[in-house]
């Protein structure tokens, strides 16, 4: 890394703009809760899917631009991102399915949990 670093200030402010806009959109959607986004797709409301996708967009910009992953060598970049990309959705899938199953057991069994 001997080469001279030029200033990235402009890009930093652009990314800040993107992150701000995404956050504002999230907050507005969270307050209005449009009726059209309440339909369920793949077991979750469309609105919640939008929130999760926007969150991942924000995470991408923070990691790639602010944490400067885009400038790292490919092997380093992917040794950081891949474990997270594999393990977290895996854990989420297992535990959420399990949680849903326990909910079914609670609601369909003959025992009242609200006595």
């Amino acid at each position: 890394m001997a080469h001279a670093h030029e200033s990235n200030t402009k890009r930093i402010w652009i990314v800040f703009g993107i992150l701000s806009v995404v956050t504002i959109v999230e907050v507005i959607l969270g307050i209005i809760k449009p009726e059209s986004l309440m339909a369920s797709v793949l077991g979750m409301k469309i609105l919640n899917w939008i929130f999760i996708i926007l969150t991942i967009v924000k995470a991408y910009y923070i990691a790639w631009s602010f944490m400067h992953l885009e400038g790292e060598r490919g092997s380093f970049k992917w040794s950081i991102v891949l474990p997270l990309l594999i393990l977290i959705p895996y854990l989420a899938f297992i535990l959420l399915v399990e949680g849903n199953y326990i909910y079914d057991v609670y609601s369909e069994s003959f025992v009242s949990w609200d006595f």
Binding site: I80, I88, L91, A92, L96, G99, Y103
Partner: peptide, 25 residues
Amino acid sequence: FIVSDALTFSGFLVAYGFSRYKFID
């Protein structure tokens, strides 16, 4: 370190999701 800490936090958040799905209604 950040990778391992990220896994810790995702463990917490997924546990939260688990409990929430358990009492989703």
